[in-house]
């Protein structure tokens, strides 16, 4: 690794260290990471167990799909929130001014936020996955190595959406911070988490298929149902993620520049 790359890695680690130190000193933040995914798992786990207990094989499969959907959607949700909330932490602590006048490049800021999003997602979702196995005997890892591709695609989509959210916060300040919590809930109906894309109205299906998550959940149903790996859907999800990430990065870069032009970086916390 050359000197420039080492310095770059150190700056990325510096920003991640700031967030990790915050977790070390604030246990409610740590608790909050796992709270919602675990709560979701409990609610939907009991629902799935009830469905499975009705006896029919179809309902038992539906119960598995429900649990798989809940867990995988949490990956997208926590990846997006982890990224956006890590950025908001800087804004809330009125520290962004110092960060933006340091030699930290915008792409390094994004890399640090991605690193923190991955850590926050793992800390939030892994307990829920373990709970699903312990309480309901649902082992998501039984899906095998292909699960890595599901995880990766959902995380990428979460980061792409978060880039867009952070771009809007850069431009519009704290007024846009509610998007950090709400934006993905708006995409959930189109992501076909609990039902196939085919069950959506015909005119909505092409829109849904523009979401990487819709392809991942189609793939999940193919795997947990007939037991086949839907490579076509996985490839579509990966391709769409590239487009989404490129769009998110372009929006972030444009809004960062616009914020430097308009002076929004000076008043971003307001």
């Amino acid at each position: 690794m050359n000197a420039a790359a080492r310095l770059s890695a150190r700056r990325i680690w510096g920003l991640m260290y700031r967030h990790l130190a915050l977790f070390r000193r604030s246990w409610p933040r740590l608790l909050e990471l796992a709270y919602w995914p675990t709560l979701q798992m409990c609610i939907w786990g009991f629902t799935a167990r009830y469905l499975a207990s009705r006896g029919s094989g179809t309902l038992a499969i539906a119960a598995g799909l429900l649990l798989g959907g809940v867990l995988l959607w949490e990956i997208t949700l926590r990846s997006q929130m982890g990224f956006a909330i890590s950025f908001l932490e800087e804004l809330w602590s009125r520290n962004l001014g110092h960060v933006f006048v340091s030699p930290l490049r915008p792409w390094e800021l994004v890399a640090a936020l991605i690193g923190m999003a991955a850590i926050r997602m793992a800390a939030g979702v892994l307990p829920a996955i373990l709970l699903a196995w312990a309480l309901y005997g649902f082992n998501l890892f039984a899906a095998g190595p292909v699960l890595v591709l599901f995880f990766a695609n959902l995380m990428l989509m979460g980061w792409a959406v978060a880039l867009g959210v952070v771009a809007l916060i850069l431009r519009h300040g704290a007024g846009a911070e509610a998007l950090a919590w709400s934006v993905l809930f708006g995409l959930a109906p189109l992501s076909a988490i609990y039902y196939p894309v085919a069950s959506l109205p015909g005119w909505l299906q092409p829109v849904a298929l523009l979401l990487p998550s819709a392809h991942v959940f189609e793939g999940m149903r193919a795997l947990l149902g007939p037991g086949v790996i839907a490579w076509r859907h996985l490839a579509a999800a990966a391709g769409l993620n590239l487009v989404w990430l490129a769009a998110g990065a372009a929006l972030f870069a444009a809004q960062f520049r616009a914020a430097r032009r308009s002076g929004a970086l000076l008043s971003i916390g307001e």
Binding site: G14, L15, R18, E89, H98, P103
Partner: peptide
Amino acid sequence: LPHRLSVAENLRVYAHL
């Protein structure tokens, strides 16, 4: 500077940056 971080942690963050 982030209020919850100690003085040393804050300085360490900027030493890295």
